[in-house]
Design a protein around this nucleic acid. Structure first.
Length: 258
DNA sequence: ATGTCTCCAGGATGGAGA
């Protein structure tokens, strides 16, 4: 089973690039972030034509996540538990029913958190505390799961081409990275790092300042796997070349093969 | 040194978010 994550930075702006990549990569399941669309305006037909079941958790202008799956989706839930006041569309879950596995797939768009300090950073850290609680609950019930998406976290210096540029940024602040480590240390596996070591592997290049041409990137899109899912990991790769195409998102897809 | 893209309101361009 091939499962991908892709922050598309606006579905309307990616109506050509997204199906092109889907046709080529042929993922069975995809979690999307930053669809920047309400559910009613999401171009589901374009995806259903390709054999995907489509579940969205949209919002006007900002945020918005979705799950696409060629396999049946069950028990879809929207919104990260733990704060009834939070109306930002950043979390969707569904169970993907495969031949020999019922996998809970969690798609997430973790808050950016800048500027630091400030209310947006407080929101990011609070959101990560809720994420931790959700992971603990899934582990406690021994549900096979993965959490994939745009974490807006640079885990280590080697995950940035120019780490010194990010020292004061919400994506790389010690408090942010500590929250990431607490999550991983529950017993989750960073799928990419389970397969590939060393610097130079990025999933995001800013549109500004020629970041792509200079390969000034960061690795912020991640898959975290529960123990039984980690046992099934066969591959994890980043589709880097997607960034060099026409009308690209600033993120590229990352995927796992289970 | 600077550099961009997307969305929306509103009806032109500018602000917000990233």
């Amino acid at each position: 089973m091939k499962i991908a994550s892709f922050n598309i930075n606006g579905i309307k702006a990616r109506v050509a690039a997204l199906p092109d990549w889907l046709d080529e990569a042929q993922p069975d399941v995809v979690v999307l972030q930053e669809i920047k669309s309400v559910d009613e305006a999401f171009p589901r037909e374009m995806l259903e034509e390709r054999g995907y079941n489509v579940e969205t958790h949209g919002q006007k202008s900002f945020n918005g996540v979705a799950i696409l799956s060629k396999l049946p989706l069950e028990d879809v839930t929207r919104g990260l538990p733990g704060d009834d006041e939070d109306d930002q569309a950043r979390w969707i879950e569904a169970t993907v029913v495969g031949d020999d596995l019922a996998l809970r797939v969690c798609g997430l768009y973790l808050p950016n958190g800048n500027p630091v300090p400030g209310p947006k950073y407080e929101y990011k850290l609070a959101w990560m505390t809720r994420l931790q609680a959700r992971a603990e609950a899934l582990l406690a019930e021994e549900t096979p799961f993965l959490m994939a998406g745009d974490y807006n976290i640079i885990p280590q210096a080697e995950d940035a081409a120019k780490p010194d540029n990010w020292r004061e940024d919400a994506l790389f602040r010690p408090e942010s990275r500590a929250a990431w480590r607490r999550l991983v240390n529950l017993g989750l596996t960073d799928a990419f790092r389970a397969r590939t070591q060393g610097p130079g592997h990025y999933s995001f290049w800013d549109y500004q300042a020629g970041a792509w041409n200079r390969n000034n990137g960061i690795r912020i899109d991640h898959f975290l796997l529960s123990p039984t899912v980690a046992d099934r990991l066969r591959a994890c790769q980043i589709d880097r070349d997607v960034r060099g195409r026409d009308k690209p998102s600033d993120h590229v897809p990352i995927w796992v093969e289970l």
